[in-house]
Design a protein around this nucleic acid. Structure first.
Length: 642
RNA sequence: GCUGGCGUAGCUCAGUCGGUAGAGCAGCUGUCUUGUAAACAGCAGGUCGUCGGUUCGAUUCCGACCGCCAGCUCCA
């Protein structure tokens, strides 16, 4: 009879044939046996450590969601005769399941499916684990082509001993699954079906499009409520909505998809961002260059863009005189030409050419998303041209600059990935190997943790990407650092070395904010539109109490402007309450209410964004505090009064 | 690009089972002259995304296109 050691150190004897669940607490939904997740119905054949797992820990939640996905698929199959089910894994915050259905579902069908799921839950059907031979499994899923495809693929994937296929059955319905599952359909938590979407079978766009149902599942009803609340919070921060509310930018249909116009307020915000990064680059030893938006075809043929990137480029333009032009999707070839405008010495290196370069990429229609994915964008793009022995130091200094810049906005702890050679690539294998080696060494020297993304590199070289977490925990890919031996070769870039011989330099492509559009979109969501003072388009709103105070407000605004701030007077005849509300809705950092009292004392009454009011603030003190706050790019508002 | 959904005033939305449309906010005007998140009244504002088709008649039904949204695939 096996002995089970429980987490508290107790050893219990499990009678022969008894499941592990019989010695675990009733709230347990799955178990760990010697570290491995197993069903509660698992019968240990030997001594070992047994641990209860509840839905409150990550593994348990994972299983809960997986089981919920199964029950959803069971419900769909009950309701839709002829449904073919594909796969249904747990994902962050929930689960999905993919189906091929005779008739597509509509959002109205989701409540019906939820109701059926509830019935299955009430029936409390046990999840029964069955081990079938491959042949038995193929028969069981005779009318399920996707399951059969998976079973047929199992042998190759799992190697020897894969003649056994694990199937879980609940009621009459069964699914191919490695498990484990909760003990029965009555042990699901709180769930909700969220949306319908299309998804390619096995993520391959050459294969059939299936219908996917997304759902979310949590241990308890309050957990579900909290999650739905978090989703609402994210919607409240949507930069597309805030962009309109705050009058920052728009996407006029006449311009074409993915092409933004920045309004007056957005223009100031952009200028603040641009000045900050440009000045910082100059401080850090970068040079500025400026290049046009178009170039002849030959440039793109040389760089390899027409061969490897044409899908992402706007169609060619013909000037009618026999020349063809492309609008630029990248800045690199132009910077190469700046380099090549003279014979370069080893003394010139590293050369760091920097530009806020506006590029146009013909992104596929379905991927566009507000400012986060556009077709016209400005990159904070630099190309560092250096000797190979300078490469690692240069990469490290880029990492350093990256962390420095992002800290300014309150982004810390990046998630870093190293992306290797993709399918569509130029350059020899040895170049790729050296480039990857340099990036790897730099990463190791930097102490940054990273993961490897196979085949995700740019067509001309491998890259390191930095993803940063925003205020509500979402990750955004911003920075990219790419090492390129290929373009120097293609453009025959050279420098004269100490030995008076000609040598080939290496090039680093890097964008730290990424694109100003995406970065702006991320910042809007990160700050929920309430920008720190230095970025706020309008910094101070002056609200005259009555018409007779407008002139005094204007004089004060003039003083603030002269001091370098961005004030705005609201001269409308509305009530004070309404004008204050208007300022608050525009998320203006400071509102000054100007009435008789202020006219007499020459002091200010200051309201900050939190609604805190301070009376009798001296103008000089107010200006000093705001200049300090903006000058240090503080993320906190100044306090006045108490 | 693919799958599904959507497109009515500057914004947020109602509505028309086919007879050319309404509200709130914003805007403008007037009254009020206001003390920290919405004063009151009036006015103005829409070829109901575009183009075809069906119909005596289309914003409504059908089709194509354009755009947007969610997801897939792809990416700064």
């Amino acid at each position: 009879m096996p002995q089970i050691e429980l987490p508290d150190g107790h050893r219990v004897v499990l009678p022969e044939g008894e499941p592990i669940g019989s010695v675990l607490p009733p709230t347990t939904i799955v178990a760990r046996f010697d570290g491995e997740l197993v069903d509660l119905s698992f019968v240990p054949g030997r001594d070992g450590k047994g641990e209860p797992v509840t839905a409150d820990e990550p593994d348990g939640l994972h299983v809960l969601r997986h089981s919920t996905a199964h029950v959803m698929a069971q419900a769909v199959c009950d309701l839709v005769p002829g449904a073919k089910y594909a796969i249904g894994p747990p994902i962050e915050d929930g689960f999905y399941y993919d189906f091929e259905l005779p008739q597509p579902l509509t959002p109205d069908d989701l409540p019906r499916i939820e109701a059926r799921m509830a019935e299955i839950g009430a029936a409390d059907q046990p999840f029964v684990r069955e081990e079938l031979s491959r042949q038995q499994a193929l028969e069981r899923f005779a009318d399920q082509p996707y399951k059969r495809e998976i079973i047929e693929g199992l042998d190759e994937a799992e190697g020897a001993g894969a003649d056994t296929v694990v199937v879980y059955r609940s009621g009459e319905w069964s699914d191919l699954c490695r498990g484990p599952h909760v003990p029965s359909t009555g042990r699901l938590g709180a769930f909700k079906l969220l949306k319908l979407a299309g998804a390619y079978w096995r993520g391959d766009e050459s294969r059939p499009m299936l219908q996917r149902i997304y759902g979310t599942a949590w241990p308890t009803e309050p957990d579900l409520k909290a999650y739905l609340h978090r989703v609402e919070e994210a919607e409240r921060r949507d930069h597309r909505k805030l962009g309109r509310q705050l009058d920052l930018f728009s996407f006029p249909e006449e311009l074409g998809p993915g092409l933004a116009v920045w309004h007056q307020r957005g223009g100031i915000f952009r200028k603040q961002l641009e000045d900050y990064v440009r000045d910082l680059h100059l401080e850090r030893g970068y040079d500025l260059v400026v290049t046009p938006h178009l170039a002849r075809r030959v440039l793109w043929d040389t760089s390899g863009h027409t061969a490897k990137f044409i899908e992402n480029m706007y169609p060619v333009m013909d000037d009618g005189q026999g020349s063809q032009y492309f609008v630029k999707p990248m800045n690199c070839p132009f910077h190469v030409l700046v380099y090549k405008s003279q014979v370069r010495s080893y003394r010139d290196l590293p050369m760091r050419l920097s530009e806020l370069g506006t590029v146009y990429r013909y992104e596929r229609a379905g991927v566009l998303h507000g400012l986060l994915r556009v077709r016209g964008m400005t990159q904070d793009d630099s190309h560092i041209i250096c000797r190979e022995d300078q490469l690692i130091d240069e990469i490290l200094s880029v990492f350093d600059l990256t962390l420095d810049i992002h800290r300014t906005f309150g982004f810390e702890d990046p998630v870093v990935t190293l992306s290797t050679k993709p399918g569509q690539a130029i350059g020899e294998e040895s170049m790729w190997a050296r480039a990857i080696e340099a990036l790897t060494k730099a990463l190791n020297n930097s102490g940054l943790e990273y993961t490897v993304a196979e085949g995700e590199g740019a067509f001309y070289g491998p890259k390191v990407d930095f993803h940063f977490r925003d205020a509500i925990g979402r990750l955004w890919q911003l920075t990219t650092v790419q090492v390129d031996f290929a373009l120097p070769e293609r453009f025959d870039m050279e420098f004269v070395g100490e030995d008076n011989e000609r040598h080939r330099p290496v090039m680093i492509h890097r964008a730290i904010l990424g694109s100003l559009e995406r970065f702006a979109g991320v910042l809007i969501e990160h700050y929920a539109g309430a920008f720190p003072l230095w970025l706020a388009p309008e910094q101070v709103r002056l609200v005259p109490v009555a018409d007779r105070h407008v002139e005094h407000a204007r004089e004060l605004a003039e003083k603030l402007r002269a001091a370098g701030l961005r004030p705005f007077v609201d001269p409308s005849g509305e009530t004070v309450g309404k004008k204050v509300r208007a300022a608050q809705l525009m998320k203006v950092p400071y509102t000054l209410v100007i009435g008789d009292r202020e006219a007499e004392t020459a002091n200010l009454t200051v309201r900050d964004r939190s609604g805190t009011e301070a009376k009798d603030v001296a103008l000089e003190a107010f200006v000093r505090a705001l200049m300090e706050e903006a000058g240090t790019r503080s993320l906190e508002q100044s306090r006045f009064g108490d």
